[in-house]
Computed example of a mutant assay.
Amino acid sequence: MTRPARIKAALVGTALATVLTTLGTGPAHADQRWKETAAQGTALTPTNGTNHCISPDGVDLNMLLSIREPIIGPVNCRVAFAKKPWVRTFPSWGTAASAATAVYPAGYTPSLPNPFDDFLLKFLGVRVTQDIGTPQEQSVSYGPEVLRLVTPVEGLPFGTFATPAIPGLRPGPHTSTVFFRMAFEHCDGAGTDQEENCLPAGEVQYTGDTPFEVVKKRM
């Protein structure tokens, strides 16, 4: 049984507000505070020598995260080159600022007092599946190194994720789905809703099936 994607808005400065609220797709929860606000824009087609993912408000995600390959994630960064490596980004994860401000569902006790430290302790990595449910389905798994940045936003810590380079695919339409792997249950300390505020032990689906296109590289 898969769990609906947990979508949180991580606003790292005004320039990154759109970027980090659109790092993936998936159903939004009833809690309006954390609904994903999809940026408007058209897919960027990489050109020779230019793999940069530019957010709708002009932020270069490749420079921000020191990534050379094309990025798949934000709604206007959904194109990669045929048989060339690419990188997957997906929604950030945030927690309460400290043990002093954290609240949890009944019966849950964190392993570490600080909520984000508790997440770091339990986060094992991700599995990224391409073309899920089709004959072409394939998966790659990565460890905790996919957490690239931890940034305070209005006093709350948020983690930004990006995979290492993923092997290239054949030309055509594809999807990418991200699953989190957790050693133990983790709750973020930001609320008491088990579904909204917690990640269960084991593997849980974290995003929806993000569509993207693989094109032949221009000569």
Rank of each mutant, 00 (worst) to 15 (best):
A99P: 01
Y104C: 04
H186Q: 07
T101F: 01
E203G: 04
N114Q: 14
T177W: 00
P164W: 08
T101R: 08
S176I: 14
G189E: 11
F180E: 09
F180K: 07
T151F: 02
S98V: 10
E203V: 15
L147V: 15
S176D: 07
T109S: 12
A99T: 07
L147K: 13
A183F: 00
P167L: 08
D131N: 13
V126N: 04
L156G: 01
G168L: 09
F116Y: 12
C198G: 09
T177Y: 00
A106E: 12
S92N: 12
P135K: 10
T163M: 03
C187D: 09
V150Y: 02
A106Q: 12
D193F: 07
G133R: 01
Y142T: 05
V128Q: 08
T95I: 13
C198W: 01
E185A: 12
I166P: 07
P115T: 13
R170Q: 12
L147N: 07
P200T: 09
A201R: 04
E195P: 00
D118Q: 08
C187E: 08
G133C: 05
V128T: 10
S139D: 04
G155V: 08
F179E: 13
F116C: 02
N114A: 15
T129V: 15
G172N: 03
F179D: 14
T89F: 01
A99D: 11
E196N: 05
V178T: 14
G159F: 02
A162E: 03
A99L: 02
F180S: 12
M182P: 04
T192C: 08
V150K: 13
G143A: 06
E145H: 06
L156Y: 10
N114C: 06
G172W: 01
R181I: 07
R170V: 14
T89P: 00
Y104S: 06
Y108Q: 12
L147C: 09
A162I: 10
A106K: 10
L169I: 05
F179S: 08
E203P: 01
P105R: 04
A100C: 01
P105H: 03
F179M: 10
G189H: 11
P152F: 08
